[in-house]
Design a binder for these strands. Sequence first.
DNA 1: GTGAAAGCGCTAACAA
DNA 2: TTGTTAGCGCTTTCAC
Lengths: 335, 335
Amino acid sequence: MAKRRTITIKEVARVAGVSVTTVSNYLNGQMARMSPETRDKVGKVIEDLHYQPSSAAQSMRSNSTKIIGVIVGDISNVFSPLLFGGLQKVLKPRNYSLMLLSADNDPDDESRCIGKLLRQHVDGLIIQPTQDEPEAFYPITVSGTPLVIVDGIVRALPRNAAHVTSDNTTSTAAMCRELHERGYGRILTVSESTAPTSSQMPRLRTVAGCAADLHMEHVALDMRGHDDAWLAESIRGGLTPGLRTAVFPLMGPMLFHTLDALMLAGLSFPDDLGLVSFDDWNWGRFIGHGVDLLQRDIDEIGRLAGESLLRIIETGSPERSEISVPTKRIAGHSL
Amino acid sequence: MAKRRTITIKEVARVAGVSVTTVSNYLNGQMARMSPETRDKVGKVIEDLHYQPSSAAQSMRSNSTKIIGVIVGDISNVFSPLLFGGLQKVLKPRNYSLMLLSADNDPDDESRCIGKLLRQHVDGLIIQPTQDEPEAFYPITVSGTPLVIVDGIVRALPRNAAHVTSDNTTSTAAMCRELHERGYGRILTVSESTAPTSSQMPRLRTVAGCAADLHMEHVALDMRGHDDAWLAESIRGGLTPGLRTAVFPLMGPMLFHTLDALMLAGLSFPDDLGLVSFDDWNWGRFIGHGVDLLQRDIDEIGRLAGESLLRIIETGSPERSEISVPTKRIAGHSL
DNA sequence: GTGAAAGCGCTAACAA
DNA sequence: TTGTTAGCGCTTTCAC
């Protein structure tokens, strides 16, 4: 199927027997600048020819593409569609389109994605960062493209960029205190060290700190390079009679691994041990008698990030550069 | 923050003291057409200036954007990231970017999305259709843009478009027979009539047909306009002592509703009734003692759709226009 | 080995 | 009310 010759504004003008200016005016709603007959005629020709103005040509003149670039670390994580949904809610009514790229948790890939979107001249950028090297974002700063960083933690926020995350420390600390009060003496965190920007990091640090303060034991299990059998083994090995243990997966995918490991190990909660997890997906209530959760509001993060971005685009600089969305405590029966 | 003046190829040429032609040659890897000194100098200037060639200008000449447009019915459905992941696997290595739009299950919105992507001159289109009016896709055909329709069922497939779906009828029919063999006498389907293109439709028809053939009762519960309490009521009302009943949600979100309804109704499976569901997400094993499922391989659908699209783009027409991906039967303990 | 210039489809002065 | 034309940033002949 040979791509048919593209229909241009010139073509429309020729067929309608008017100048390109008139057609352009029509496209841009400047109806006052032509007679009603001309208007109808142009409209009809556009219809007949199924003419679609080229946004490439348009944006080349207008310096605006109405495209927002989004880079996530891992597209298959449920985080992505939730974020996207939130973003769409505020961006779509404003007529922006979203270009979604996945960096696959690879810093180099992320840099390539940034370049790609910059070449597209996107009007703004939303990034869930995989790397925290300030230089990675330098091209963005140079180009002057509005930027909002979501979820991940970066060492140095580029000038004029906004940052939207969920609360990690307060909620984690509160959970540690709760575990202490409930009589737990040991916490087994389950995480996977991927990017230095991962929100698991502050959570892990908080657990470590709080455990020390509360005189609880803390064992950090890192899934990196390991499988569920290893996790099952490690969890079982972490149990001591007389010392209540709570397993604490620090992100959704780790809850999956943990549940599989518990099945493998033949352990059940809350009898053999307690279970509480970070997770963004609302399915915990169906597991057992309900899993105790710390749940982020990703949709809200998306909305706030979108609004922040719009503000930067419109005013030229963010009003507030750091926004933290509260994490919800979902009660269950797994502790 | 005023968007800094864009750096152009002209600028680079001026600073490097060469012509734009030379810079262009450099960008396109035509290194043979310049001296090594020139090459290095140009490279350095590009680096220093953080120059990014404008893809709008490039695509205006080349007639290729290296962008694939994707339209899904509902971005918040887990279907979306899974499809996207599959698409990325084949498209990203070929240097295509994805532009994702959600039609929010609205035909008009879908048409708008199509227009938007056509104006972007995307190199190809992947659509999970919300409407099955053949005219809706006419602009695509006119523009000659390669098209692959995924998941949904359309009345008339546009000429030269490919179609990738999962098997709905065979798997559903097999399930009905299994239910019959297991001694079930009544099937309660749970669906939500949204789009006429929804894959729930063939599933529903198949259940109705098989139930009749096997002399089983079939009650179709349509969630449209109802809440979980209504569903709980309806399910309870659908039980008769002596006649084994199976609830059969026809898509993932309906499984959520059904589980909530069962909790509300105080019914448990497989004791009070059987439960089997279509669902694309792999969490069913954590529910109760595991839910019996019919699971599509969305990642595979994405990969096949991507490959199909590439084939259309490259050869000009699809080799095989209808592809059906088998649906997996995940064994559980809910029947 | 290097450069000048035409033209991709569109918008916006400026003319008529 | 309508038309002419100069670019936007880039690629690509065709000369030098």
